[in-house]
Design a protein around this nucleic acid. Structure first.
Length: 484
RNA sequence: GGGGUUGUAGGGUAGCUUGGUCUAUCCUUCGGCGUUCGGGACGCCGAGACCUGAGUUCAAAUCUCAGCAACCCCA
């Protein structure tokens, strides 16, 4: 029997997601997981480009109403410890800097697990008047958490490298709540652009962000049927304002606490793009975020003596595409075409253009779509508009496919909870008590995601009413799922 | 949180039980040269590793302990 090497083996996403995921990160050159510290990884150039394109979308959405800032990574112990509830939620997973050289520091410094306690003391200084409000800032930074559970690249990290956190301060609670709605809309827009389906839920009271009044979260569905939180949005109200004494003088001269929100997205959004769209051949990237949108593969034969012509045609096509603002790449390497196909399929390039002598004789080239391997012939003079059209089509196709498998895995349960399937997301009736929530989690081996948040009233009515599956008291329809 | 498995070249393995002239092998790994090129080419030449530390011993890839790291299962 012939020994098969790793890189040639076809990976199976559905049967063994975990293995698929790790292999894809390596083979598609997203992350190098060989760094010798638990839970921290190295971004390859290709992966980093993907990351930056994804965060570019996020930035452009945020920049409309937020300003980007950069706060320090070190937080003094006293500031970190100020908000009691907040501390409780994080204290077990804080990394501490306790020495400078061989000298013990008088004041231990925390590596930020999140930046509330770094930012809000400065908010106190920045905010004086109602004219300073609303204040809306964000930063994209690394944060550190001493995770004790099993770490996983992009998903559960000790160093989150790409934590986008927004922090806002408002004059009134109503303004803060309006900001929550805007943030939800912004995140919807973001994940829609990434073609990632999600559910939005209000997290149960006993599982909200430490220090928040309530938390709203986006969850995507991974191929193994587990939910993954990909975004969170918190109404902080006045709690941090009271702790850090963030006040402003209102029009009438009264001194009032600000109302705050914060909301974040980490590189889990990259994990979602990879996991939701990828297939057994590798990545399938939405054209919008693909580092290379079109790869051109020349088909050359030294014997035919036509390689010069072919190479020239490829070069011309590539230049035209670049001029049109398309990220095109001409693969001139001296590998055989087949090897190139596999490589670029693994890397998720949405569209491949092949040009060989046979095509040149007919003044055309061939398109092959990454998502479904559909092949088509295109006249050379139409390449640019056809590429633009096809990329759009590819985006629509992968979004449709993602939605299809997403909704196929969301189930409604009307009755008791016994016999519920453990794959996918299930909605059932549950009261608000922590005891019942925990019992459901334990008995079903799931996490309670929370009550569905809908925008329009029709969907709201759809939820219906029912008794809690545990205690039979009045319950609300909540989503549960095994979660990352 | 609990349990288990594992660490040998870029990747995959053998060697460990029973310590000894201990290194070896495969690859689509890397480098060079040539022939090739419409779905993972081939030939020749060459390169590259025993996780870290301590212990046992005349002698450790092999045995013991610790650390670090990876993977799997249960909660």
């Amino acid at each position: 029997m012939q020994h098969k090497t790793e890189t040639k083996t076809i990976l199976q996403k559905e049967n063994n997601f975990s293995e698929w995921y790790n292999e894809i990160l390596k083979r598609a050159e997203i992350l190098d997981i060989r760094y010798p510290v638990k839970g921290v990884y190295v971004w390859y150039p290709y992966g980093y480009k993907l990351r930056n394109l994804i965060y570019g979308i996020l930035r452009s959405l945020l920049d409309k109403e937020h300003e980007e800032v950069l706060f320090p990574m070190l937080i003094p112990e006293k500031e970190l410890m100020m908000e009691k509830e907040h501390v409780k939620g994080f204290e077990d997973e804080v990394f501490w800097v306790t020495k400078g050289g061989s000298t013990e520091l008088d004041i231990p410094l925390a590596l930020r697990p999140t930046s509330e306690t770094a930012i809000y003391p400065v908010f106190k200084v920045w905010i004086r008047s109602h004219r300073d409000l609303p204040l809306r800032i964000y930063q994209i930074v690394n944060t550190f958490r001493y995770e004790t559970k099993h770490t996983r690249p992009l998903i559960r990290l000790r160093e989150i490298t790409s934590f986008k956190e927004a922090h806002t301060a408002h004059a009134s609670r109503a303004d803060a709540e309006a900001q929550i709605k805007k943030a939800v809309a912004l995140y919807k827009n973001f994940f829609d652009q990434l073609a990632i389906p999600y559910v939005i839920t209000r997290r149960p009271d006993w599982d909200k962000f430490p220090g928040a009044e309530y938390s709203t979260a986006f969850d995507a569905l991974m191929p193994d049927g587990r939910a993954m939180q990909i975004a969170t949005i918190h109404l902080l109200g006045e709690s941090f304002a009271r702790t850090f004494d963030i006040v402003y003088e209102d029009k009438d001269g009264a001194v009032k606490f600000v109302n705050q929100t914060c909301y974040g997205i980490s590189e889990r959004c990259v994990a979602a793009v990879i996991s939701v769209h990828g297939d057994d051949h590798g990545l399938v990237l939405p054209p919008e975020v693909a580092p290379i949108q079109v790869v051109i593969v020349p088909i050359v034969f030294s014997s035919e003596g036509k390689s010069a012509e072919v190479e020239k045609a490829c070069f011309v096509v590539c230049e035209e595409l670049k001029k049109a603002g398309i990220r095109a790449f001409l693969d001139n390497s001296d590998e055989r075409p087949g090897a190139k196909y596999y490589r670029w399929e693994m890397k998720g390039v949405p569209l491949r253009i092949e040009i060989g002598p046979r095509d040149l004789r007919n003044n055309r080239c061939e398109f092959v779509r990454r998502n479904d391997f559909k092949r088509m012939q295109v006249p050379l003079c139409d390449v640019v508009p056809e590429v633009e059209r096809t990329l759009k089509e590819i985006n629509d196709c992968i979004y449709e496919r993602a939605k299809e498998s997403f909704f196929a895995n969301i189930h409604k349960s009307e009755g008791a909870m016994e016999g519920l399937r453990r794959k996918g997301i299930v909605s059932l009736f549950l009261c608000e008590s922590e005891r019942c929530g925990k019992e459901v989690e334990e008995r079903l081996g799931v996490n309670v995601l929370g009550e569905a948040v809908y925008e329009d009233e029709d969907e709201e009515r759809e939820k219906g009413e029912g008794g809690c599956v545990i205690c039979s008291k009045e319950g609300k329809r909540v989503y549960v799922a095994r979660a990352y």
